[in-house]
Write a protein that binds this DNA or RNA. Structure first.
Length: 328
DNA sequence: ATGGTTTTTACTGCGTC
DNA sequence: GACGCGGTAAAAACCAT
Protein backbone atom coordinates (compact mmCIF):
# COMPACT_ATOMS: atom_id res chain seq x y z
CA UNK A 1 0.00 0.00 0.00
CA UNK A 2 1.38 3.34 -0.92
CA UNK A 3 2.05 5.47 2.08
CA UNK A 4 2.90 8.49 0.04
CA UNK A 5 -0.59 9.53 -0.65
CA UNK A 6 -1.64 9.55 2.94
CA UNK A 7 -0.30 12.92 3.84
CA UNK A 8 -2.94 14.57 5.90
CA UNK A 9 -3.64 18.23 5.83
CA UNK A 10 -5.02 19.45 9.07
CA UNK A 11 -3.03 22.63 9.22
CA UNK A 12 -3.28 25.70 7.07
CA UNK A 13 -0.75 25.66 4.33
CA UNK A 14 1.22 28.50 5.85
CA UNK A 15 2.13 26.32 8.78
CA UNK A 16 3.19 23.39 6.77
CA UNK A 17 6.87 22.95 6.35
CA UNK A 18 8.56 21.72 3.27
CA UNK A 19 11.29 19.24 3.84
CA UNK A 20 13.37 17.50 1.28
CA UNK A 21 12.53 14.13 2.66
CA UNK A 22 8.87 14.64 2.02
CA UNK A 23 8.58 14.22 -1.69
CA UNK A 24 4.83 14.30 -1.87
CA UNK A 25 4.56 17.85 -0.70
CA UNK A 26 6.59 20.62 -2.17
CA UNK A 27 5.70 24.21 -2.64
CA UNK A 28 5.91 26.75 -5.30
CA UNK A 29 3.95 29.70 -6.44
CA UNK A 30 1.13 29.70 -8.89
CA UNK A 31 1.79 31.61 -12.11
CA UNK A 32 -1.82 32.68 -12.25
CA UNK A 33 -2.44 34.16 -8.85
CA UNK A 34 0.89 33.82 -7.03
CA UNK A 35 -0.77 31.61 -4.46
CA UNK A 36 0.80 28.59 -2.92
CA UNK A 37 0.76 25.40 -4.86
CA UNK A 38 1.09 21.95 -3.45
CA UNK A 39 1.94 18.71 -5.10
CA UNK A 40 -0.42 16.05 -3.95
CA UNK A 41 -0.56 12.66 -5.48
CA UNK A 42 1.56 13.87 -8.33
CA UNK A 43 -0.53 16.77 -9.44
CA UNK A 44 0.47 20.27 -8.58
CA UNK A 45 -2.47 22.36 -7.70
CA UNK A 46 -2.77 25.93 -6.60
CA UNK A 47 -4.47 26.14 -3.25
CA UNK A 48 -5.85 29.56 -4.05
CA UNK A 49 -7.25 29.33 -7.50
CA UNK A 50 -7.35 25.56 -7.88
CA UNK A 51 -5.37 25.61 -11.06
CA UNK A 52 -3.80 22.32 -11.94
CA UNK A 53 -0.27 22.71 -13.16
CA UNK A 54 0.51 19.32 -14.50
CA UNK A 55 3.65 20.06 -16.34
CA UNK A 56 5.58 22.06 -13.83
CA UNK A 57 7.19 19.05 -12.30
CA UNK A 58 8.55 17.53 -15.43
CA UNK A 59 12.28 16.93 -15.46
CA UNK A 60 12.73 17.52 -11.78
CA UNK A 61 13.92 13.98 -11.57
CA UNK A 62 14.06 10.85 -13.59
CA UNK A 63 11.00 10.84 -15.71
CA UNK A 64 10.41 7.17 -15.40
CA UNK A 65 10.71 4.59 -12.74
CA UNK A 66 12.76 1.49 -12.79
CA UNK A 67 10.72 -1.64 -12.77
CA UNK A 68 13.61 -3.96 -12.17
CA UNK A 69 17.37 -4.06 -12.07
CA UNK A 70 17.96 -4.12 -15.78
CA UNK A 71 15.63 -1.23 -16.30
CA UNK A 72 17.44 0.72 -13.67
CA UNK A 73 20.76 0.24 -15.37
CA UNK A 74 19.26 1.27 -18.63
CA UNK A 75 17.85 4.47 -17.35
CA UNK A 76 21.16 5.92 -16.24
CA UNK A 77 22.55 8.02 -18.99
CA UNK A 78 24.76 10.91 -19.88
CA UNK A 79 23.78 14.06 -21.64
CA UNK A 80 20.43 15.34 -22.62
CA UNK A 81 17.49 13.06 -21.96
CA UNK A 82 16.66 10.97 -24.92
CA UNK A 83 13.02 10.70 -25.53
CA UNK A 84 11.32 7.42 -25.82
CA UNK A 85 8.66 9.09 -27.79
CA UNK A 86 10.75 9.12 -30.93
CA UNK A 87 12.11 6.09 -32.56
CA UNK A 88 13.09 6.51 -36.19
CA UNK A 89 12.61 10.16 -36.99
CA UNK A 90 9.77 9.38 -39.27
CA UNK A 91 11.56 7.22 -41.77
CA UNK A 92 9.09 4.43 -41.91
CA UNK A 93 6.86 5.05 -44.83
CA UNK A 94 4.52 3.04 -46.91
CA UNK A 95 4.83 3.06 -50.63
CA UNK A 96 2.08 1.39 -52.51
CA UNK A 97 3.01 -1.32 -55.02
CA UNK A 98 0.64 -0.12 -57.62
CA UNK A 99 2.27 1.99 -60.32
CA UNK A 100 -0.25 4.70 -59.99
CA UNK A 101 -0.09 8.22 -58.78
CA UNK A 102 -2.45 9.72 -56.32
CA UNK A 103 -5.10 10.22 -58.96
CA UNK A 104 -4.89 6.65 -60.11
CA UNK A 105 -3.09 7.41 -63.38
CA UNK A 106 -0.25 5.20 -64.47
CA UNK A 107 3.24 6.48 -64.06
CA UNK A 108 5.79 7.21 -66.68
CA UNK A 109 8.70 4.86 -67.33
CA UNK A 110 11.05 7.14 -65.51
CA UNK A 111 8.84 7.47 -62.51
CA UNK A 112 8.40 3.74 -62.37
CA UNK A 113 12.10 3.17 -62.13
CA UNK A 114 12.31 5.82 -59.50
CA UNK A 115 9.55 4.26 -57.50
CA UNK A 116 11.09 0.87 -57.70
CA UNK A 117 14.30 2.17 -56.23
CA UNK A 118 12.41 3.91 -53.49
CA UNK A 119 10.46 0.80 -52.68
CA UNK A 120 13.56 -1.28 -52.48
CA UNK A 121 15.20 1.02 -50.03
CA UNK A 122 12.10 1.58 -48.08
CA UNK A 123 11.59 -2.11 -47.79
CA UNK A 124 15.13 -2.64 -46.62
CA UNK A 125 14.69 -0.03 -43.96
CA UNK A 126 11.39 -1.42 -43.01
CA UNK A 127 12.25 -5.05 -42.65
CA UNK A 128 15.45 -4.23 -40.88
CA UNK A 129 13.47 -2.35 -38.34
CA UNK A 130 10.14 -4.07 -38.46
CA UNK A 131 9.84 -3.63 -34.77
CA UNK A 132 10.20 0.08 -35.10
CA UNK A 133 7.20 0.25 -37.32
CA UNK A 134 4.80 -0.85 -34.69
CA UNK A 135 6.59 1.36 -32.28
CA UNK A 136 5.99 4.40 -34.34
CA UNK A 137 2.32 3.80 -34.54
CA UNK A 138 2.03 2.94 -30.89
CA UNK A 139 4.00 5.88 -29.67
CA UNK A 140 1.95 8.20 -31.77
CA UNK A 141 -1.14 6.65 -30.29
CA UNK A 142 0.18 7.02 -26.77
CA UNK A 143 0.88 10.63 -27.46
CA UNK A 144 -2.51 11.29 -28.89
CA UNK A 145 -4.43 9.64 -26.08
CA UNK A 146 -2.23 11.17 -23.42
CA UNK A 147 -2.81 14.65 -24.62
CA UNK A 148 -6.50 14.00 -24.91
CA UNK A 149 -6.45 13.04 -21.26
CA UNK A 150 -4.17 15.85 -20.22
CA UNK A 151 -1.37 13.58 -19.08
CA UNK A 152 2.07 15.11 -18.82
CA UNK A 153 5.05 14.16 -20.90
CA UNK A 154 6.61 12.16 -18.12
CA UNK A 155 3.66 9.81 -18.19
CA UNK A 156 4.03 9.34 -21.90
CA UNK A 157 7.64 8.47 -21.39
CA UNK A 158 6.73 5.89 -18.83
CA UNK A 159 4.07 4.52 -21.11
CA UNK A 160 6.62 4.26 -23.88
CA UNK A 161 8.97 2.34 -21.66
CA UNK A 162 6.25 -0.05 -20.69
CA UNK A 163 5.20 -0.46 -24.27
CA UNK A 164 8.74 -1.17 -25.39
CA UNK A 165 9.14 -3.81 -22.75
CA UNK A 166 5.86 -5.41 -23.61
CA UNK A 167 6.72 -5.30 -27.24
CA UNK A 168 10.11 -6.85 -26.69
CA UNK A 169 8.50 -9.66 -24.78
CA UNK A 170 6.23 -10.35 -27.68
CA UNK A 171 3.09 -9.42 -25.87
CA UNK A 172 1.75 -7.81 -28.98
CA UNK A 173 1.03 -11.26 -30.29
CA UNK A 174 -2.66 -11.60 -30.88
CA UNK A 175 -3.31 -8.10 -29.70
CA UNK A 176 -3.56 -4.84 -31.48
CA UNK A 177 -0.88 -2.27 -31.02
CA UNK A 178 -3.75 -0.01 -30.30
CA UNK A 179 -4.78 -1.82 -27.19
CA UNK A 180 -1.21 -2.43 -26.13
CA UNK A 181 -0.48 1.26 -26.38
CA UNK A 182 -3.59 2.21 -24.47
CA UNK A 183 -2.90 -0.35 -21.79
CA UNK A 184 0.65 0.90 -21.41
CA UNK A 185 -0.58 4.41 -20.93
CA UNK A 186 -3.18 3.28 -18.46
CA UNK A 187 -0.53 1.51 -16.46
CA UNK A 188 1.82 4.47 -16.67
CA UNK A 189 -0.82 6.88 -15.47
CA UNK A 190 -1.57 4.70 -12.50
CA UNK A 191 2.07 4.26 -11.75
CA UNK A 192 2.61 7.98 -11.73
CA UNK A 193 -0.34 8.48 -9.44
CA UNK A 194 -2.23 10.32 -12.11
CA UNK A 195 -4.83 7.69 -12.72
CA UNK A 196 -7.32 7.90 -15.48
CA UNK A 197 -10.16 5.47 -15.27
CA UNK A 198 -10.63 2.71 -17.78
CA UNK A 199 -13.71 4.51 -18.98
CA UNK A 200 -11.80 7.65 -19.65
CA UNK A 201 -9.16 5.72 -21.53
CA UNK A 202 -11.71 3.85 -23.55
CA UNK A 203 -13.47 7.06 -24.44
CA UNK A 204 -10.52 8.47 -26.32
CA UNK A 205 -8.85 5.27 -27.39
CA UNK A 206 -10.09 3.22 -30.26
CA UNK A 207 -10.09 0.23 -27.98
CA UNK A 208 -13.12 -0.83 -26.04
CA UNK A 209 -13.00 -1.04 -22.30
CA UNK A 210 -13.01 -4.77 -22.13
CA UNK A 211 -10.06 -5.58 -24.29
CA UNK A 212 -8.25 -2.66 -22.80
CA UNK A 213 -8.50 -4.17 -19.39
CA UNK A 214 -7.61 -7.61 -20.62
CA UNK A 215 -4.52 -6.29 -22.31
CA UNK A 216 -3.65 -4.32 -19.24
CA UNK A 217 -3.74 -7.29 -16.91
CA UNK A 218 -1.86 -9.35 -19.42
CA UNK A 219 0.87 -6.78 -19.76
CA UNK A 220 1.28 -6.14 -16.07
CA UNK A 221 1.40 -9.80 -15.11
CA UNK A 222 3.78 -10.70 -17.89
CA UNK A 223 6.04 -7.80 -17.12
CA UNK A 224 5.73 -8.33 -13.43
CA UNK A 225 4.94 -4.72 -12.77
CA UNK A 226 2.50 -4.52 -9.94
CA UNK A 227 0.69 -1.25 -10.18
CA UNK A 228 -1.35 -0.64 -7.08
CA UNK A 229 -5.00 0.12 -7.49
CA UNK A 230 -5.79 3.72 -7.99
CA UNK A 231 -7.06 5.33 -4.83
CA UNK A 232 -9.59 8.04 -4.36
CA UNK A 233 -6.82 10.31 -3.13
CA UNK A 234 -5.23 10.15 -6.53
CA UNK A 235 -8.38 11.12 -8.35
CA UNK A 236 -9.32 13.89 -6.02
CA UNK A 237 -6.96 16.68 -7.16
CA UNK A 238 -8.12 16.45 -10.72
CA UNK A 239 -11.78 16.32 -9.78
CA UNK A 240 -11.40 19.22 -7.39
CA UNK A 241 -9.79 21.22 -10.08
CA UNK A 242 -12.42 20.44 -12.66
CA UNK A 243 -15.14 21.35 -10.22
CA UNK A 244 -13.23 24.45 -9.19
CA UNK A 245 -13.48 23.58 -5.56
CA UNK A 246 -12.08 25.88 -2.95
CA UNK A 247 -8.99 24.78 -1.12
CA UNK A 248 -11.04 24.33 1.99
CA UNK A 249 -13.37 21.97 0.22
CA UNK A 250 -10.53 20.09 -1.32
CA UNK A 251 -8.83 19.52 2.01
CA UNK A 252 -12.09 18.47 3.61
CA UNK A 253 -12.72 15.95 0.89
CA UNK A 254 -9.20 14.67 1.26
CA UNK A 255 -9.60 14.22 4.97
CA UNK A 256 -12.79 12.30 4.44
CA UNK A 257 -11.09 10.02 1.99
CA UNK A 258 -8.12 9.49 4.27
CA UNK A 259 -10.38 8.56 7.12
CA UNK A 260 -12.36 6.30 4.92
CA UNK A 261 -9.32 4.38 3.81
CA UNK A 262 -7.94 4.19 7.32
CA UNK A 263 -11.12 2.54 8.31
CA UNK A 264 -10.26 -0.35 6.10
CA UNK A 265 -9.63 -1.18 2.52
CA UNK A 266 -12.91 -0.86 0.74
CA UNK A 267 -13.51 -3.95 -1.28
CA UNK A 268 -15.06 -3.46 -4.63
CA UNK A 269 -15.97 0.15 -4.17
CA UNK A 270 -14.65 2.20 -7.00
CA UNK A 271 -12.10 4.85 -6.26
CA UNK A 272 -13.84 7.37 -8.45
CA UNK A 273 -17.09 6.77 -6.62
CA UNK A 274 -15.44 7.33 -3.26
CA UNK A 275 -13.81 10.50 -4.45
CA UNK A 276 -17.11 11.72 -5.84
CA UNK A 277 -18.92 10.98 -2.60
CA UNK A 278 -16.19 12.65 -0.59
CA UNK A 279 -16.61 15.81 -2.58
CA UNK A 280 -20.32 15.78 -2.03
CA UNK A 281 -19.92 15.02 1.66
CA UNK A 282 -17.38 17.79 2.00
CA UNK A 283 -19.95 20.10 0.50
CA UNK A 284 -22.44 19.14 3.17
CA UNK A 285 -19.94 19.58 5.97
CA UNK A 286 -18.77 22.93 4.73
CA UNK A 287 -22.26 24.01 3.94
CA UNK A 288 -21.27 24.46 0.37
CA UNK A 289 -23.28 21.96 -1.59
CA UNK A 290 -22.12 20.69 -4.91
CA UNK A 291 -24.94 19.13 -6.79
CA UNK A 292 -24.63 15.43 -7.33
CA UNK A 293 -25.20 15.59 -11.03
CA UNK A 294 -22.27 17.92 -11.54
CA UNK A 295 -19.98 15.74 -9.49
CA UNK A 296 -21.17 12.73 -11.38
CA UNK A 297 -20.33 14.39 -14.65
CA UNK A 298 -16.71 15.08 -13.94
CA UNK A 299 -16.07 11.94 -11.94
CA UNK A 300 -17.61 9.58 -14.43
CA UNK A 301 -20.01 8.18 -11.91
CA UNK A 302 -23.69 8.60 -11.26
CA UNK A 303 -25.59 10.46 -8.60
CA UNK A 304 -26.84 7.13 -7.37
CA UNK A 305 -23.35 5.97 -6.59
CA UNK A 306 -22.69 9.18 -4.76
CA UNK A 307 -25.83 8.71 -2.76
CA UNK A 308 -24.87 5.18 -1.88
CA UNK A 309 -21.42 6.12 -0.77
CA UNK A 310 -21.53 9.44 1.00
CA UNK A 311 -23.46 8.40 4.14
CA UNK A 312 -20.55 6.09 4.98
CA UNK A 313 -18.15 8.98 4.71
CA UNK A 314 -20.30 11.20 6.88
CA UNK A 315 -20.65 8.48 9.45
CA UNK A 316 -16.93 8.03 9.76
CA UNK A 317 -16.50 11.74 9.88
CA UNK A 318 -18.94 11.96 12.78
CA UNK A 319 -17.16 9.14 14.53
CA UNK A 320 -13.81 10.80 14.30
CA UNK A 321 -14.75 14.35 15.02
CA UNK A 322 -17.84 13.92 17.12
CA UNK A 323 -19.65 16.31 14.85
CA UNK A 324 -22.89 15.26 13.39
CA UNK A 325 -23.56 16.65 10.00
CA UNK A 326 -27.04 17.70 9.00
CA UNK A 327 -27.94 15.54 6.07
CA UNK A 328 -30.12 18.10 4.45
C1' DA B 1 -20.72 -20.86 -15.72
C1' DT B 2 -22.09 -19.08 -11.12
C1' DG B 3 -23.06 -16.27 -7.37
C1' DG B 4 -22.15 -12.21 -4.66
C1' DT B 5 -21.23 -7.43 -4.82
C1' DT B 6 -21.38 -2.97 -6.87
C1' DT B 7 -22.87 0.32 -10.28
C1' DT B 8 -26.12 2.00 -13.51
C1' DT B 9 -30.60 2.88 -15.44
C1' DA B 10 -35.04 4.39 -14.88
C1' DC B 11 -38.65 5.88 -12.27
C1' DT B 12 -40.80 7.56 -8.06
C1' DG B 13 -42.35 11.20 -4.62
C1' DC B 14 -41.05 15.07 -1.67
C1' DG B 15 -39.66 19.73 -0.54
C1' DT B 16 -38.16 24.16 -2.21
C1' DC B 17 -37.42 28.12 -5.00
C1' DG C 1 -43.17 23.74 -12.92
C1' DA C 2 -38.22 22.91 -12.57
C1' DC C 3 -34.76 21.43 -9.67
C1' DG C 4 -32.12 18.76 -6.29
C1' DC C 5 -32.47 14.85 -3.81
C1' DG C 6 -33.63 10.27 -1.54
C1' DG C 7 -35.36 5.87 -2.29
C1' DT C 8 -35.88 1.65 -4.93
C1' DA C 9 -36.28 -2.18 -8.31
C1' DA C 10 -34.28 -4.28 -11.99
C1' DA C 11 -30.58 -4.70 -15.21
C1' DA C 12 -25.82 -4.61 -16.15
C1' DA C 13 -21.11 -4.98 -14.95
C1' DC C 14 -17.56 -6.81 -12.26
C1' DC C 15 -14.86 -10.28 -9.81
C1' DA C 16 -13.54 -14.41 -7.60
C1' DT C 17 -14.41 -19.09 -7.65
Amino acid sequence: MSQQSYTTYNKPSSERTTSDSDDTTERNTCPECNGNTTVTGGERICSDCGLVLNDTQIDHGPEWRAFNASERSKKSRVGAPSTNLMHDKGLSTNIDWKDRDARGNSLSQKKRRQMKRLRTWNERLRTRSSKERGLKFALGEIDRIASALGLPKSTRETASVIFRQAHKKGLAQGRSYESLASASLYAAARQEQLPRSLDELAAVSRVDRRSLQRTYTHVTTELGIAVPNATAQQYLPRFSSELELSDEMHQQARELIDMYYEHGEPSGKTATGIAAAAIYAAGLIKDNRIIQDDIGDVTDTTPVTIRNRYPDLLEIHAEQTGEEVPSA
